[in-house]
Nucleic acid binder design. Structure first.
Lengths: 323, 323
DNA sequence: TCGATTATACTCAATACGAGCATAATGAGG
DNA sequence: CCTCATTATGCTCGTATTGAGTATAATCGA
């Protein structure tokens, strides 16, 4: 990855009116391996693949692909844009450089490629341990985060602010007999940030984290971008057949279900899952059966060709409601 | 608006490796007046408000607000990001400038501000006459576009390409007893572009439009961005209470319904509409009644404060299915 | 051979949704 | 003043859709 400082010093000085803008491309690349969602990282698992958008790039997408392949030697398949943001970035003295970050979500399968220390796959729940509800409410969430969030809400000045905080926390984390909504990944991360319960929030300030906070952090706002990607994916699997981008060419319905559950961070009713998948004609039998596990042999399925063609337009339903 | 050419010549020449990037902010600002959806335009209704992102701007959003207010003196309320894209833009000789366009969707109400020739509100169906199905399938669509699209599909070389085109047309425009899906605004525009049935497609080339094509066009890709905005809005009203951004402080349920219908471009069942709105606790009665039209006086409603607070997180349902 | 695990078929109640009927209130036009 | 088109509003009803459970059979590991 090119160093920002180097780039900037290459350029001639400019007056304050002229545009000194550069654009960074950042990738959230997801795969699901053995029922665990994983994200492609670089730099000791503390950063997402990224690099500047250059004149040589044909498009934003191809620039992103080039950077990811250069940094991780992993080719990308399906990608979609996530979000664009611009934060003030000071470089040295008075020079102010404007950086626009354009983030993308990519879906692939983790190949048996050579592991290098410079990059690798990391379970996404390492970064968001409170997001995995497949085995019930996680310990960190119930025993550590909820009490601290409540304390944070209560310590607010003014009763209306207190009420506001309590309501936001209850909504985002499914408190007070509200339901857990797995799509609110970003809102939860932002609340934790506001309450200084993630490492990124206290970084750089003097009052460094007085309490140990859960979840591995990342450089800059990469973990926030990852949260955005997870949220988007959890939303999207409910109405578009994108799960199949993460599956091998042939798979059993249980494998498909485990993948969905890994992404959503919650379990689904098996019989209803199968009913929905089959009635939508998304998959077809390959004819083979496999018995990798105990129990009767399972039929193998593949994603239907015709649906794949109209991938961007076809719908999907999963036994996960969207409220 | 600053002129791109001027900007570029101000800058020193650069070698091909260095970054010569500027970012444009483009706004799709929507209001609904008298049951007609309208878009804020500049330059003889042929362009969307836009301008370069500058160092002085605090954020992308505030930069966008500044440009829209400078160009149209209309203040913006709710805005959300639409999409970011980068196309190669040649300026003069060999110099290549990279322009990144970041588009936003804004929702307001059309105020009784002074009309100036430089800007104004335009009905969005002026640009997309085939999108308004409130009075049935539009004439232009049934009599002009569908035949031409069919012809375009049939003239393709190779049977698989022909089949592909026919299928895409049928899906996007609801042919062959398929249902019309009002969300596919962008797909439809892109198909029309591909089939050279919109003015933008033949622009610049020698074979200028041999046939008159329907719908007012816009500069550059502004009409494509407008299509993106309409598509997003039509999708979003179904699961988030954004319609209320377009409503006056108090309104009748019929006015609310007419607004939804204007946006969706199709009529909804009145009784079911009311049932959904009322059972969701989105609105509350103001206590007043009005009888502007014939029929019994209608109760006036307002959007509920509490819901407004959690606007970004609350859900909505409308009698418009999302498939 | 037993028991845990899985595939797969069915049932059932609750609800959501689309579509229509019915009735009442009102203003416009004669 | 009367009629009628128009609107507000309440109610019904059949049909999907959805969540949750029961039942049964196939298979592997111990």
């Amino acid at each position: 990855m090119q160093d920002k400082t180097t780039q900037a010093t290459k350029q001639p000085a400019r007056n304050s009116r002229s545009q000194a803008i550069s654009a960074d491309l950042i990738a959230v690349v997801i795969a699901v391996t053995n029922g665990e969602p994983r994200v492609l990282t670089i730099g000791e698992a503390g950063a997402l693949p990224s690099g500047p958008f250059e004149l040589g790039h044909r498009s934003l997408q191809s620039g992103l692909r080039a950077w990811v392949e250069r940094q991780t030697s992993h080719p990308l398949g399906y990608i979609e844009q996530l979000y664009t943001f611009a934060d003030r970035d000071r470089i040295g003295d008075e020079r102010v450089e404007r950086v626009i970050s354009i983030s993308y979500l990519g879906l692939t399968r983790e190949e048996q490629s050579e592991r290098s220390p410079a990059h690798g796959w990391r379970g996404w729940y390492d970064y968001f341990p409170w997001e995995d509800h497949r085995a019930g409410v996680p310990f960190v969430l119930r025993e550590i985060l909820v009490p601290r969030l409540s304390a944070w809400a209560d310590e607010a000045e003014g009763s209306s602010l207190r009420r506001d905080r309590r309501q936001r926390v209850a909504h985002a984390f499914g408190l007070d007999d509200r339901d857990w909504n797995e799509e609110l990944v970003l809102q939860r991360y932002e609340l934790l940030y506001e309450a200084a319960l993630v490492a990124e929030a206290t970084r750089g300030s003097d009052n460094g984290s007085p309490l140990s906070v859960p979840g591995r952090s990342m450089i800059a706002d990469h973990r926030r971008i990852l949260a955005t990607g997870i949220a988007r994916l959890r939303t999207k699997i409910k109405y578009r057949p994108v799960v199949f981008e993460l599956m091998p060419p042939a798979f059993t319905l249980l494998q498909l279900q485990r993948t969905v559950e890994a992404l959503a961070g919650r379990l689904v009713h098996k019989q209803n899952f199968r009913r929905l998948i089959e009635q939508q004609d998304l998959v077809e039998e390959t004819g083979e059966t496999v018995s990798e596990t105990r129990g009767p042999p399972a039929k193998r399925f593949r994603f239907r060709q015709t649906v794949q063609a109209e991938r961007t337009v076809a719908g999907t339903k999963l036994p996960l409601s969207r409220a």
